[in-house]
Amino acid sequence: MTRILKIPLLLILLTFNSCKQKETNGIEIAETLYVHQDYETNKELRKLIKEALDQKEKAIPKLTSFPCGGGAGCYDLGFVLTQIIYLIGENNFNQMVLRLDTNEIKGLRSLIRAGLEYGDHNNDGKVDDRTIEKEFPILNTTLKE
């Protein structure tokens, strides 16, 4: 490839990369999850967040199985889920979960626990002692069954 073609391609790639968003519809996409995403992956995550906020239950299994890169990226995905629950309310989220089968909610409880434990819900840089049992007792019962 000639040098003339490389420069425009590089600019296009940089432009697409810079179109990623760390926040959508009031939901923060924390750093470790965000940095491992390309433009398309970020766009897909933002679409799923919007669908979950619109209470489309089929977004939940897609979010639960969303590629998070392991480790801290998955904690950040859990943080996304907990923010969604806080925004739409535990009862509404629980009703969505009840419309899904057990295979579709596999791993959801673990992600929520991680999101509560490691997420910065107060935006103060500190992690507090939130647990699924205290924060979402109804959802906790549903996910245990």
Rank of each mutant, 00 (worst) to 15 (best):
K134V: 14
I132D: 00
G70H: 04
V80N: 03
I60L: 06
L45C: 02
F79N: 12
K50D: 06
L5Q: 09
E40V: 10
D38N: 13
T15Y: 14
S18P: 01
M1P: 12
K126N: 11
L53K: 07
Q95I: 04
T24V: 10
L77K: 00
P67T: 05
C68Q: 09
G73H: 08
Y34E: 00
A72G: 03
G107E: 07
L87M: 10
Q83L: 04
F136W: 06
E44I: 10
F136V: 08
N103V: 08
K58L: 11
P67F: 10
D124Y: 14
G119T: 05
A114R: 06
E117W: 05
Y34Q: 00
K47W: 00
H36Q: 14
I132H: 05
G125I: 00
I29M: 05
L13E: 15
I27W: 12
V35M: 06
V35C: 07
M96F: 05
R99V: 13
T131Q: 04
A59V: 11
R113P: 01
L10D: 11
Y34M: 10
L98N: 09
I4E: 10
M96Y: 09
T32N: 14
L33E: 02
K58W: 03
Q95G: 03
D120L: 08
K106E: 13
N91A: 14
K58C: 00
L14V: 12
D129V: 07
I29G: 11
Q95C: 03
K56Q: 15
D76Q: 11
E104G: 07
E135H: 09
K22R: 04
E57P: 05
L14K: 01
I132N: 00
S65V: 04
V97H: 12
K134F: 15
T32G: 06
C19H: 10
A59Q: 00
D101Q: 12
L45D: 09
I132E: 02
E40R: 11
Y75A: 12
P8H: 13
N17T: 02
S18N: 15
L45P: 02
D76N: 08
A52I: 06
K56Y: 10
D76Y: 00
E117D: 13
L53D: 06
T142R: 01
Y75F: 15
F16S: 08
G119C: 07
S110K: 08
